[in-house]
């Protein structure tokens, strides 16, 4: 389905996650963050850019892994993206939701 984010038509899935991470830019991140009730700072973008880099490498992400990354510790990750930081940060980063096989 299509969503209008930052005045652009973007393909997203039923849960509002971008289907193509290459359609992403900072304006889209801000628009999604606003829906999640988050105002993005530079610190948020450092985390978001790290997630995008990891996704490009094909690695699957977990909170523990992000905590070990040196980019952000787990406490701050929860402060930046309260309640379900991984799924919120992933959506803002324009990457797929962390998922199981079904």
């Amino acid at each position: 389905m299509e969503a209008t984010l930052a005045n652009e038509k973007i393909e997203v899935n039923e849960q509002g996650y971008l289907l193509d991470m290459d359609q992403w830019h900072e304006g889209i991140a801000r628009a999604i963050a606003a829906e999640e009730g988050i105002e993005l700072t530079n610190r948020h973008f450092e985390v978001v850019n790290f997630l995008r880099k990891e996704q490009k490498n094909g690695t699957s992400l977990s909170i523990r892994k992000i905590g070990k990354s040196g980019v952000v510790d787990i406490k701050e990750f929860y402060e930046l993206f309260p309640e379900g930081p991984l799924k919120k940060a992933s959506r803002i980063a324009g990457i797929a939701k962390p998922a199981s096989c079904i």
């Binding site: 039923e14 977990s62 909170i63 379900g84 939701k97 962390p98 199981s100």
Partner: peptide, 11 residues
């Protein structure tokens, strides 16, 4: 108890 947002995560 799961770290994901549900037991079934694919639409």
């Amino acid at each position: 108890v799961t770290p994901m947002d549900g037991a079934f995560t694919k639409p």
